[in-house]
Design a protein around this nucleic acid. Structure first.
Lengths: 218, 218
DNA sequence: CGAATGCCGTACCGTACCGTACGGTACGCG
DNA sequence: CGCGTACCGTACGGTACGGTACGGCATTCG
């Protein structure tokens, strides 16, 4: 009579529940529109009754799935201290590569499609969860690096949020919207690294200070 | 026994049909998920039978709606020839403002949501239509300007497509994805103009050839 | 061993919605 | 006038899907 629903509570889902959520992700990737309760139950070899006991309703199941996927995207926070130019480039490049790998992945595309379709109606915003764990999470990880770069005199900007948004735009460009709208553009690892490098260089062309220059104004 | 379906044919829809399509757009903006054939018929004061005669099926109706909206977004093509720095800035600024106004508009958000949700399944890609009339249409209009700027010695780039994609990223940044995911970020005209100006200056910082016009600082 | 629990499989219900059919009305034309 | 055409309003069938109920099995625990 226990087994709190994994939706309301923030408990990590059990192993069996994780298997169910992975089944949902699999269905989403195959065809976002056929994520029906019957299909999930069949795919996960569980009964619909169990689905409803664990997740409340279909919305709870989708929410739990989004959370579950988000929980394993998070890479480790690593604090960087003093930066030289090469290290800054490297860190930004890493972020750009990671981000591009995420948004071009089929799971991300499927999940964003679901969340966007859901955002049209009011109920329980998957969009907020996706944003919090995607766009905003990466922002909170990049901004300290940018600020460290500024502290080291390598970058010049007033607002780290604005600077990050520019970085975000330079990295992603039109890739995400094109993928979401169904275009199949294949980026291999080399292409992603090339794209990331270009974005970093362009970012430095805008915000870079030529030399470590300890007179930071604004 | 005529009245070719407005879907298969490329005929412009009749006035009455346009009213129907506007009703669909209205429903999409209000709540993307309640665009049902009954609701459209009620809203447009027409019978479902007529809807099916005109548009074939629900997919045809949605496709016709996307085309209809696309048909009136197109601004006039205007060929510019020789550019000086101020004119180039102005043209780019205009494009940026227009684009931001489009993607922040509720109709665009609703339409993109529908198209993205639809892109998950195979049938009749609204995504392709939206891309062709949004992202790609603006690209084809911007690239000649960029090339004219290059011809005038104001810009330096090898690939106009790549340069445009950078411009696209600098203008849009994270705005579209955040709106699609349900965030309500309100940009008034002044905010859009400010954003557009920033994007143009950043673009020139990357691709600009040192040409006088010292009224910018960032 | 017997009861309780947790879960699977499946049948079932209500509803929403796509697509069609049918009756009724206004209008143009021979 | 009578007929055809185009359309509105509505009712209806079929179906897919969300959510519930029930029988059966395996495991755990008293």
């Amino acid at each position: 009579m226990m087994q709190a629903s994994a939706t309301a509570e923030q408990d990590a889902p059990s192993a069996r529940q994780q298997a169910v959520l992975d089944a949902v992700l699999g269905l989403m990737v195959e065809d976002g529109e056929q994520v029906t309760m019957d299909a999930v139950a069949r795919r996960a070899s569980c009964s619909k009754e169990t689905l409803y006991k664990w997740f409340g309703d279909r919305d709870g199941l989708l929410t739990a799935t989004v959370r579950w996927q988000a929980s394993r995207v998070h890479a480790g926070h690593d604090a960087a201290q003093v930066l030289d130019g090469a290290t800054l480039r490297e860190r930004l490049q890493d972020f750009a590569v990671t981000w591009l790998e995420v948004i071009t992945g089929p799971t991300s595309v499927a999940l964003n499609r679901i969340a966007i379709a859901h955002a049209g109606s009011r109920k329980s915003n998957l969009g907020g969860i996706v944003l919090a764990n995607g766009r905003f999470a990466i922002g909170e990880r990049v901004k300290p690096v940018l600020e460290a770069g500024r502290a080291a005199g390598l970058l010049a900007f007033a607002d780290s949020e604005a600077a990050f948004r520019t970085f975000f735009g330079l990295v992603g460009r039109d890739i995400q919207i094109r993928l979401l709208l169904g275009e199949t553009l294949d980026l291999d690892g080399a292409g992603i690294r090339r794209d990331a490098g270009r974005a970093v260089e362009q970012f430095l062309a805008i915000y870079g200070r030529a030399k470590p220059d300890p007179n930071h104004q604004l």
